[in-house]
Simulated scan of single mutants.
Amino acid sequence: MTDFPPIAFNRAPPAPDFPWPNGAKSALFVGFDVDGETAWIGNRPENGDRLVTVSHGGWDGRVGIARILDLLEEVKVKATFFIPGWTALAHRLQCEAIVAAGHEIGHHGYLHRRPERSAFDAARAEIDRGFEALDRALGVRPVGYRAPSGENFPELLAYLADSGIVYSSSFRDDFRPYRHLLHDDRPGPIEIPVNYAFDDWNFGMTSRVDPRPIFGRDAVLSLWIDEFEATHAWGGCTTMVLHPQVSGRPMRWHLLRDFLRHVLAKGDVWIATGAEIAAHYRACEAA
């Protein structure tokens, strides 16, 4: 039987208290995971022979990315798009449009393979290959990282820092940004924690190989508004994990637009990219 010492897994100190820019009471980080087909083949290569199953992810390139860019232009919001390297190569024109619209590009692995501590070399190769593909397809070197399938481990976190990653947006243990403490006691990347309630996959995606309930507009919009309002009252950062193959579909596109309009109407929310939030954190940290 495996035993664990009674020590917190996350060694980072508590999130510091710092003000948001321009007198804002809270922040909103709109992050998209542009998985495309990698969501269906990265951890399940057998799906490569299931064209209908993989077509869920094909929505990104055919429809979803363009529709999401239209929405962000309509509401005048800049977002961060975490793109696996494979997606950037397979849907280059659509991903080039993201860059052209002025949005941030983040690292999301290469084939969306879940990092495993027992296979560190493979996890490291996934990072390197992702950097190379994003540079080749889009000419960018990301400073932000979101873990494919939402996993990480100490050695990989250190490798990300050594590779120039300034911030991560993967962990689910706080409502304000903090800085990681690496396993060798060096300061690590800034973490912009995820709020799992804002992962649209949980409510709007199902398939034959991964069946789950689908939730309608009223259930999701009320949940998002309630969770946002509570986070706003606490002065935190509402971090969204959205997917064009979910929120780029008709009803959910309108759902996301209505939520963003609700936030914009507050007038005291700083809506920023991950890079902007990380830069603000560093400035406050230095001061």
Rank of each mutant, 00 (worst) to 15 (best):
I192P: 05
G204E: 03
S169L: 10
E276I: 09
S149G: 04
L72F: 06
G274I: 03
H108C: 14
P142S: 12
R176D: 00
N43S: 06
S163R: 03
G23W: 10
E151F: 15
H108T: 01
G188C: 10
W253T: 14
K78R: 14
V34Y: 00
H56M: 02
P177T: 12
R136V: 08
E73Q: 15
G248A: 03
A119Y: 03
A88N: 06
Y196Q: 14
P16G: 00
D174C: 02
L264C: 11
E227S: 07
L181I: 04
I65W: 02
P5T: 05
L256R: 13
V166E: 13
S169G: 10
L51T: 12
R62F: 14
F4P: 07
A27N: 06
N202H: 10
I127P: 03
G216A: 09
D210R: 11
Y281W: 15
G267F: 11
P244S: 08
V34T: 05
A15L: 01
Q94K: 13
G85T: 08
A27C: 11
F18L: 12
W59K: 13
P154M: 05
L51I: 12
L156E: 13
H91D: 07
P213I: 02
H112R: 11
N43Y: 04
N47W: 01
C237H: 02
A287I: 09
F120W: 01
R172K: 12
V220M: 04
D184L: 06
G42W: 02
P13L: 07
M1C: 15
E104D: 04
Y196W: 13
S168A: 15
G188L: 06
R261G: 15
A8N: 14
G130A: 09
R50L: 06
C237I: 09
Y159P: 03
A12N: 08
R249I: 02
M251N: 15
F4E: 06
V30S: 02
R282G: 03
T231R: 01
Y196D: 08
V220E: 00
N47Y: 00
R124K: 15
R217P: 03
Y167L: 01
P142V: 14
W270T: 07
I192L: 05
E73S: 13
Y145N: 05
V99G: 10
S222G: 05
G267H: 07
V77R: 00
E116H: 15
I190H: 02
A24C: 11
H243V: 07
V143D: 01
R186M: 15
V166P: 02
L28F: 07
G216I: 14
A279I: 06
V209C: 11
R114T: 10
G61C: 12
F131G: 12
H107W: 04
A278Q: 13
G42F: 06
G42P: 06
F9N: 13
F171T: 04
W59M: 05
D49M: 08
